[in-house]
Amino acid sequence: MNHKKNYKSLQILVKEEKFIVEGPIQKEELASHEFDEGLVAFRPPKKQKEALLKVAELPESRIIIARENNKIIGYAIYLFPDPLERWSEVQLDNLLELGAIEVSANYRGYKLAKHLLKVSMMDDTMEDYIIITTEYYWHWDLKGTGLTVWQYRDVMEKVMKSGGLEWYATDDPEICSHPANCLMARIGKRVGPEAVHEFNRVRFKHKYMF
């Protein structure tokens, strides 16, 4: 499959602050920006930038950023599922996982996560893909936000729905290990029935779940 990437950009004005949400961006452009010091969910900002530069080299990867001038304050990454997860067992080249979405702790309250997802789906190429995200409560910033597990789950689900992702049932043991965990997905308009069947097959490995 030709992983076509049609650049999209959205300028937003929130609380008199101007931000640019754009992508998919190329490695060279990503390298030219600095990372905000509040991007610490996965690793220190400098290390996270290095990690994203490596991701940008993957042919299927799509990186959407939110920035203030030359400073990246949020990002969303799409790439093939982790080889260690069951979703990689699907023999599809049009299944991508929302591998990470992060907004700097210094820029919360601007709905940047929703805008990152909206810009992601503005590219018509996304209608050729099945996009999934696996949400695990132990990855959530409960301490930093002060939310309970269920409050965070509600916020997270609303954010994902802004990008067209919906809740899907699965018998994946890791997701089923806690009721707050979930699988969400968006099936593009041009995804064929064979691909949908493969996705459903890997969602359920035990027939009694149907």
Rank of each mutant, 00 (worst) to 15 (best):
H3N: 09
K4P: 00
K5D: 13
N6R: 14
K8F: 08
S9W: 08
L10Q: 13
L13K: 12
V14I: 08
K15C: 09
E16V: 15
E16D: 14
E17A: 12
E17V: 15
F19I: 10
I25G: 02
K27T: 05
L30D: 05
A31W: 11
S32C: 02
S32D: 06
H33Q: 13
F35K: 00
G38W: 03
L39D: 06
R43C: 01
P44I: 00
P45H: 02
K46E: 04
K47S: 03
Q48L: 15
K49F: 04
E50T: 12
E50P: 05
V55W: 15
A56L: 03
P59G: 03
S61V: 11
I63T: 02
I65W: 06
N70I: 03
K71E: 07
K71V: 07
I72L: 03
A76E: 06
L79S: 05
L84M: 08
E85Y: 09
R86N: 07
R86Y: 02
W87S: 07
W87Q: 12
W87G: 01
E89M: 15
E89D: 10
V90P: 04
L92D: 10
L92Q: 13
D93I: 00
N94Q: 07
E102M: 13
V103S: 00
S104V: 11
S104L: 03
A105F: 09
R108E: 06
G109A: 13
K114G: 05
K118T: 15
S120F: 06
S120K: 06
M122S: 11
T134M: 13
T148K: 14
T148F: 15
M156K: 08
K158D: 03
M160V: 04
K161W: 15
S162D: 05
P173M: 13
C182G: 11
M184P: 06
I187E: 00
G188I: 14
V191L: 04
G192D: 07
G192K: 11
H197I: 11
H197N: 12
F199S: 00
N200V: 01
R201E: 11
R201A: 12
R203C: 05
R203L: 03
Y208H: 14
